[in-house]
Amino acid sequence: MWRHVASNFLSIAVVVLVVVAGVVAWAQRQYVGPGPLADAICYKVPSGAKLWQVAEGLEEKGAVASAYIFKVGADYEGKAGGLKAGSYLIGPGASMQEIVGIVAGSGRSTCGTEINYRIGVAAVDIIVRELDAATNRYVERVKFDPAVDAVPQDYVDLAEDSDARIRITLAEGVTSWQVVEALKRADFLTGEAGDVPAEGYLKPDSYEVRRGSERGALLAEMGQRQRAAIDALWAERSPDLPYDTPEEALVMASIVEKETGVPEERPVVASVFVNRLRQGMRLQTDPTVIYGLTEGRGVLGRGIRQSELKKETPYNTYVIDGLPPTPIANPGEESIRAALNPAETKYLFFVADGTGGHVFAETLEEHNANVAKWREIEAQQKATDGN
Rank of each mutant, 00 (worst) to 15 (best):
T285N: 07
D39C: 05
I320F: 13
A25V: 07
G332K: 00
R108T: 11
I102H: 08
L323R: 02
A63Q: 08
E247H: 04
D231L: 09
V268W: 02
P342R: 02
E208D: 13
F360G: 13
A372H: 05
T175V: 13
K44N: 13
T245Q: 01
T317G: 14
A171F: 11
L202N: 04
E365H: 10
G107R: 03
A253S: 08
V23T: 08
G298H: 01
L348N: 05
P34C: 15
S66G: 15
G261R: 10
A352L: 07
M96G: 09
W374C: 08
Q153L: 07
R141L: 14
T113R: 03
F188R: 01
A74R: 02
L241T: 00
T260C: 15
R225G: 14
G386F: 12
N330M: 10
R276G: 13
V180M: 01
A193I: 00
Y138S: 14
G332S: 08
A122Y: 10
E208Y: 11
R29Y: 07
F9R: 01
L37I: 08
I377W: 07
D187L: 00
D231Q: 10
L277T: 06
V64F: 12
G78W: 04
A150T: 10
A63K: 02
A229V: 12
L233N: 01
D39Y: 04
V299Q: 13
P197G: 12
A369V: 12
P204E: 07
Q279Y: 02
P246D: 09
E378M: 04
E208N: 08
R108E: 14
N368H: 09
Q30V: 15
G216L: 14
S87M: 06
F9A: 12
T135S: 15
E160C: 06
E257C: 12
R165Q: 14
L233P: 00
V32H: 12
G356V: 09
E312Q: 14
W2Y: 05
A186C: 10
V54K: 04
G212L: 06
S335K: 03
A134S: 15
A63F: 03
R3T: 08
R215P: 00
E312Y: 13
P267I: 07
G73N: 11
V121K: 03
E59C: 11
P324C: 14
L241Q: 00
E98Y: 07
A338Y: 00
E236W: 01
R210D: 13
D154L: 05
D132H: 07
R118V: 13
A198C: 06
P325Y: 13
I168W: 04
A338E: 02
L183E: 02
A270M: 03
G86Y: 02
A235T: 02
L218N: 07
P246F: 04
N8A: 11
G194F: 00
I336V: 15
R29N: 11
S206P: 05
R210V: 12
G298V: 06
T384L: 11
R3Q: 05
I336K: 04
A38V: 12
T110A: 06
P146D: 03
P267E: 14
G91H: 05
A80F: 08
D286P: 04
P324G: 15
L83E: 08
R227D: 14
I115L: 06
S87N: 10
G303Q: 01
V274K: 01
A369R: 11
A270V: 06
E192G: 06
L340D: 03
S335N: 07
F70W: 05
E247R: 01
N8F: 09
R210I: 08
I166A: 09
A65H: 10
L83K: 04
T313K: 07
T317Q: 10
K79M: 15
D163R: 10
